[in-house]
Nucleic acid binder design. Structure first.
Length: 509
RNA sequence: GCCGCGUUGGUCAAGGGGUUAAGACGCCUCCCUUUCACGGAGGAAUCACGGGUUCGAUUCCCGUACGUGGUACCA
């Protein structure tokens, strides 16, 4: 293992980057950093029909936001360019042909209709999805079943064909997974997968193997959904004589939906009210917008922390990690084997924890767009940072600052008068008026002196402090929440305090 | 159907032959606070089931159940 560590992530630009995808990137990234290796990102765009314009750029934006930028990618090519499979198209065919020449693969001329017909003919309750495999391939039209001259004639005539791997019969493929240990598959239950499509593009199976080999990838981490096709990839390494350079595999557990069964999909997010994509994704084909964690008000470091803890744990009691700390602590063998249900409440808790730790100035610039989107204009970011310092402990999302700190900049739009109206009386009006009048007589008020003044006046007029606190809060804040009332009064200033109190008195009259 | 992988509280999880089976989120109670939150102190709640192996299994083995993934010229 003296080869330098090179790990790769290969997203397909078909739209959006969901939680599972980002977590795969994260684990690749962390592993690379931990071992002073290189994080390679290549684009898997062999499927022309599902390719979505803009999806590739979107992926890079997400990684940029999350701070997980690759060392080599289409944007930053390294020694093994190009990094897009569509641009590597000419490189794949020779390996497929080599396999045919060796007798490990073959040409297949079956049309989609013929394949469909075969599957329908063989379909039965016991075998709902018949395969193109050692049992059926001799009934199909391919270079194994057809005479050599016929094969040549078909090729010369330009008949479309694919190249399929010839899976051996009755062999057991073993390999070691970094997370799961020894894994075994029987080759006769794996079908003869297409390696090269009729348009000359490789399928994923050929492309991963060829690219990983050519790009000297040492570690290949991907989602658990790839486990069943691992034997195809292992056989390809064997056939091509690259076994010694085969990367070490790790199949990451799935992220499951919080309720019910199945893996998390973007539909669940819509249904349950939380994002599943890293950032907003506007599908140019459907025009559908899927909300992202960023726009929902997540801090990238919290997003990454939360994702890391979904399927991995350090073995210590530490749960809050910065990216740098994760790079140190990460260990692939501590990744869990079983799928984890996504818990949005816990995700928000992680964000809360990182908001508590984040710099107020930074939070201010990140929060400003949320304020302005809510119609609260922020002219002084410094002032916002101060408001954030006062309210951050009650915010889970950046968007929470709108409700929790908006009143520092704008009088509450719909104060909960009903909470105080029933218990209102003329004495309270007098106290408030006297207090405001006193505030106007001098200018050097602070929270403490304002409180003392109010308590004094209230006592003189026979009103208990407790009776006047909540009304004042409702007038200044609009509801039963927020920091100390007098801190708020000090923050918004005498003039604004007076205005809000008068407005309150009017409502009480 | 077949094949792969998995299964510790509601959720994330530590542990891994002898433990009072950590911790976190959420929930509940109390304290702090004349608001909300933060903070603090408590609480309820877990080893899927059945067989082995063993002096002893949550831990090892085998079944079963359940979950999940795959079974495409998609990745």
């Amino acid at each position: 293992m003296e080869r330098p560590v090179r790990v790769r992530f290969a997203p397909s630009p078909t739209g959006g980057l969901h939680l599972g995808g980002v977590r795969t990137v994260l684990f690749n990234y962390l592993f690379a950093k931990k071992h002073n290796g290189t994080f390679v990102l290549r684009i898997e765009d062999t499927d022309q029909t599902r390719y979505v314009p803009g999806a590739e750029e979107y992926i890079f934006e997400c990684l940029n936001w999350a701070g997980l930028e690759p060392d080599e990618s289409p944007l930053k090519p390294g020694a093994y360019a190009p990094y897009r499979q569509s641009e590597r198209k000419p490189m794949y065919r020779q390996y497929a042909e080599q396999l045919v020449a060796q007798g490990n693969a073959y040409y297949a001329f079956d049309t989609p209709e013929e394949l469909e017909a075969m599957r329908n003919a063989l379909k039965s309750p016991e075998n709902p999805s018949p395969q193109y495999d050692s049992k059926t391939r001799m009934q199909m039209r391919n270079s194994l079943s057809l005479p050599a001259d016929e094969v040549q004639r078909l090729i010369d005539a330009g008949t479309p064909y694919v190249i399929r791997i010839k899976m051996p019969e009755n062999e057991t493929v073993h390999f070691t997974d970094l997370i799961r240990g020894e894994i075994a598959h029987e080759t006769n239950v794996v079908d003869d997968k297409v390696l090269l499509k009729s348009d000359g593009m490789p399928t994923y199976h050929l492309a991963v193997v060829v690219d990983d080999y050519l790009m000297k990838i040492t570690h290949a981490f991907r989602g658990e959904e790839w486990l069943p096709s691992a034997p195809i990839h292992i056989m390809l390494y064997k056939y091509l004589g690259w076994e010694a350079e085969m990367p070490q595999w790790a199949h990451l557990p799935l992220i499951l939906k919080p309720d019910g069964n199945g893996k998390l999909s973007k539909r669940d997010g819509d249904r349950l009210g939380f994002p599943v994509f890293a950032m907003d994704w506007l599908d140019p084909k459907s025009g559908e917008l899927t909300q992202g964690f960023k726009e929902k008000g997540f801090l990238p470091e919290a997003f990454v922390n939360m994702l890391a803890m979904l399927g991995w744990s350090s073995g210590t009691e530490q749960e809050i990690f910065t990216l740098a700390e994760l790079e140190q602590a990460f260990d692939m063998s501590r990744v869990n084997k079983s799928g984890a249900k996504f818990d949005y409440e816990k995700a928000k808790w992680y964000n809360h924890q990182h908001i508590l730790r984040a710099d107020n100035q930074r939070l201010a610039s990140l929060t400003k767009p949320f304020m302005e989107a809510a119609g609260i204009s922020i002219t002084d970011e410094q002032k916002l940072a101060e408001a954030i310092a006062l309210t951050k402990e009650r915010c889970h999302l950046l968007s929470d600052f709108v409700a929790q700190a908006g009143f520092f900049f704008q009088a509450p739009t719909a104060p909960a008068w009903e909470l105080i109206k029933d218990k209102w009386n003329p004495a309270k009006t007098e106290v408030m008026q006297a207090w405001v009048a006193q505030l106007e007589q001098q200018s050097d008020w602070n929270a403490e002196s304002m409180e003392q003044a109010l308590v004094q006046i209230a006592t003189d007029k026979g009103v208990k402090k407790g009776e006047i606190m909540m009304p004042l809060r409702i007038m200044l804040v609009g509801g039963k929440f927020g920091p100390g009332v007098f801190d708020i009064a000090q923050f918004i200033g005498i003039a604004e305090t007076k205005a809000r109190v008068f407005r309150g008195l009017e409502a009480m009259a």
